[in-house]
Structures are given as C-alpha cells and as structure tokens.
Amino acid sequence: METGNYICHLCEKEYEPTKRGIQKFCSSKCRKKYNYHKNIVPSDKSVATETISKPSKIKVEEMSLAGVGNAATGALLADGLKGIVKAFQPEENKLATKKDIQELKNFKYKRYFLIQNMERRYDGFLPYFDMTTNSLIYLRDPNYINPAANIL
C-alpha cells in the first residue's frame, strides 16, 4: 500500500488511502457521485461540484406548426400502410375481431351442427350432429317444400 495523502477528485479533501493502488476518491460515496454526474456534465471539476448540489434544468422544446404537421403526416402515412398490408394479407393470417370471438363463443355452446356433406332425407329433413349425445339426428327444415305434395 502506498503511503502519503491524496486529494479527493470530487470534494477535494485530503485523505489517506485505505486500499491498494492509487485511489482517486476519499470514499465510495464520492466515487459514486462523481460517476453519476460525469455523464450529465462535462468533466470540469468546478462544474461537476456545482451540479451535485443544483439539479440541472431540462430544456423543453416548444411546439411548432411544422412539427405538428410532420407528426400528423407521419401518423396518416403509418395508418395507410397498415391498410395496404391488411389488404394483401392472407385470410388465415388476419387478426380476429370481437365479432369473430363472439361467434366462436356461440359456436361452442351450440348443440346441433348441420352436416354439410350429407343429402336431405326423403321427407326433406336435414342431417345434424347432436353434440350432447354424439349422434346423428334429422331435424325438420322449415323452408323445405315437398315437390311431391304439390303435384295434383
């Protein structure tokens, strides 16, 4: 360990080193303050010690008409690009809407599902799959008109 007194780089007090090598600061508190403020203010010691006691003011830029116009133009351009991207996006990759989610909820609790690839029965009843009994059933179609009944 070196002997002799040193001067702290921050508070400029004279101190005797307690660790190996050359110390720049009298304590870890001074070292931390110095490292914190050296990034904010230039490395001039007089300026650095003043900024420790006085917080620096943040400069707020004024709003200008040109800046507002640029921001509005950028927002409109971004929205337009989103629309173009959505137009060319495949159907299976599109995002679900609230309506789609509501339809899925209703679909989940539906008991009878129409079987699309089966023909009507001879009397016009439609084939359905019953979700509770897991069976095939035929239900009346209210819009069906029997062509054999109209022949007179």
Rank of each mutant, 00 (worst) to 15 (best):
R140E: 10
D123Q: 15
K29G: 01
Q102T: 13
F113C: 12
E2F: 08
Y122L: 13
K29T: 05
K98F: 06
D130Y: 03
P90W: 00
R20G: 10
N39A: 09
I115G: 02
T132S: 02
K19P: 02
L10Q: 02
A48L: 12
L152A: 14
R140M: 06
K110A: 08
D123E: 15
Y15I: 01
E119G: 10
A66T: 15
C26P: 00
Q102E: 12
E50Y: 15
H37N: 13
S43H: 13
N39I: 07
I115R: 06
H9R: 14
N146Y: 08
V60F: 09
N106T: 09
E92R: 06
N117E: 10
V47S: 03
T132C: 01
S64I: 03
A48C: 05
D141G: 04
A148P: 00
Q116T: 11
A78Y: 07
F113S: 10
E2Y: 10
A87T: 14
P17A: 09
D130I: 01
V68R: 14
G74A: 13
K29A: 08
K33E: 03
Y138S: 09
T97V: 02
Y138G: 08
K57N: 14
E62S: 13
Q102L: 11
L81W: 09
I52D: 02
P42R: 03
M118A: 15
A71D: 04
T97P: 08
Y34D: 01
Y6N: 06
I7S: 04
N134V: 07
K110Y: 02
I115Y: 02
Y144N: 09
S64M: 04
T97D: 05
P90L: 05
N5Q: 10
H37D: 03
H9P: 01
Q23I: 07
K94T: 04
K108D: 07
N70C: 05
F88R: 09
I137S: 11
L126H: 09
G21N: 13
T3E: 07
I22L: 14
L65F: 04
I52P: 00
S28K: 14
I101S: 03
